[in-house]
C-alpha cells in the first residue's frame, strides 16, 4: 500500500516549523507505524536529508516514550494503544496521514516530533512517591488490602506517563496524569502518611508547569493508551480539596522541606483506615 504523510518538521525550539509532505510508496500492512517511519527515514538518510526525529523506546506499549498525534488523535486511530502499537493495517491504501507533535506550553518542542516531557518528572518529584525508611523488608501479607482497592490502584498505576492526556486535552491539562499518580498511591495503605501533602504538592507543581485547567472535556480518557478513567480526576479533586480545607497553607511547589514526623510506610500512627473504593 501507499500512503502520503504530512509531517511536522522543525529544526529546533527556536526555528519555525511546518508540515512537509512525504510519499511512502511501499508500505506493508503488517509494518508498525513506527517501522513505516523508519523506512521513510532510511530513504531520507540515503538521499542525504535530515531524518524525521521522533521518540520511541520499548515499542511494545509499556514505556510511554512514543508520542505522535496521528490524524488529530494522540497515539493514532487505535483506542487503548500507544503509537508503537499502531499498525499500517489500521490505514487504507492512498490515505493521507497527518503527524504532529504533542502540543502544550509545558511540553516545549525539541525537534520535529520530539517534545520535552520533563514537566511530568518534576510533578512526580514533587510528591509521586512513598517515603520508606530503610530497614528489614516487611513480611508478606502484613498489610491486607481489599481486592477491589488493589485493582483500582492498579488501574491508576497503569499510567505510563506518555502525555497523551495533555496532547488530547483542548486545554493541554495534565489532570489525568496527575490524578492517576495521586490516586494510585493514595488508594493504598503505604500512601496514606503522605497522602494530603502529596495531593497538594503534585497539583501545585502541575499548576506551576503551565498546564491548563480541567474543563471536563474527557478527551484525555479517550486518548489514554492505558484507558485510565476520568473518575480518578474526581478522586484527586476530592483528595486535593480535602487536603486544602483541613491543613494550613504551607505547601510550595517542588520538593521543599518535609513537614512533620518522618512517615514509615503503612505503619505510621497517622495512617488512616484503608480507603473505601
Amino acid at each position: 500500500m501507499r500512503v502520503t504523510l504530512h509531517v511536522w518538521r522543525q529544526k529546533n525550539a527556536r526555528s519555525e516549523g511546518k508540515l512537509v509532505t512525504y510519499q511512502v510508496p511501499q508500505v506493508d500492512p503488517d509494518m508498525s507505524f513506527l517501522e513505516m517511519l523508519d523506512v521513510l527515514n532510511e530513504e531520507l538518510v540515503g538521499k542525504g536529508e535530515e531524518p524525521i526525529a521522533f521518540d520511541y523506546d520499548c515499542r511494545e506499549g509499556i514505556c510511554g516514550t512514543c508520542s505522535l498525534v496521528i490524524n488529530g488523535r494522540p497515539h493514532g486511530p487505535e483506542g487503548g494503544a500507544a503509537t508503537c502499537q499502531v499498525y499500517m493495517r489500521n490505514f487504507h491504501d492512498g490515505d493521507e496521514i497527518y503527524i504532529e507533535p504533542w502540543r502544550a506550553r509545558a511540553f516545549p518542542l525539541i525537534k520535529d516530533l520530539v517534545v520535552d516531557r520533563s514537566a511530568f518528572d518534576r510533578v512526580i518529584q514533587a510528591g509521586g512517591f512513598v517515603s520508606v525508611n530503610t530497614g528489614g523488608t516487611p513480611d508478606g501479607n502484613t498489610l491486607p488490602i481489599a481486592k477491589t482497592t488493589q485493582e483500582k490502584a492498579m488501574d491508576a498505576a497503569a499510567c505510563i506517563g506518555c502525555g497523551a492526556c495533555v496532547a488530547a486535552c483542548p486545554n493541554a491539562s495534565a489532570m489525568l496524569f496527575v490524578a492517576a499518580k495521586v490516586s494510585h498511591l493514595g488508594l493504598l495503605p503505604q500512601g496514606q502518611p503522605e497522602r494530603a501533602r502529596r495531593a497538594r504538592k503534585m497539583v501545585a507543581q502541575m499548576d506551576a508547569e503551565g498546564f491548563g485547567n480541567c474543563s471536563n472535556y474527557f478527551e484525555c480518557e479517550a486518548a489514554c493508551p492505558k484507558e485510565i478513567s476520568v473518575e480518578f480526576i474526581a478522586w484527586m479533586n476530592r483528595d486535593y480539596l480535602k487536603a486544602r480545607l483541613t491543613e494550613p497553607d504551607t505547601v510550595t511547589p517542588g520538593m521543599g522541606a518535609k513537614v512533620g514526623p518522618s512517615p514509615v510506610a503503612g505503619h505510621d500512627a497517622t495512617a488512616k483506615k484503608h480507603p473505601v473504593a
Binding site: 511536522w8 498525534v69 488529530g72 502540543r103 503551565g210 472535556y217
Partner: peptide
C-alpha cells in the same frame, strides 16, 4: 496552555 494548535484535531 497551548500556544501552537494542531493542524488536524479530532474530538473523541
Amino acid at each position: 496552555a497551548r500556544p501552537i494548535g494542531y493542524v488536524r484535531f479530532q474530538y473523541e
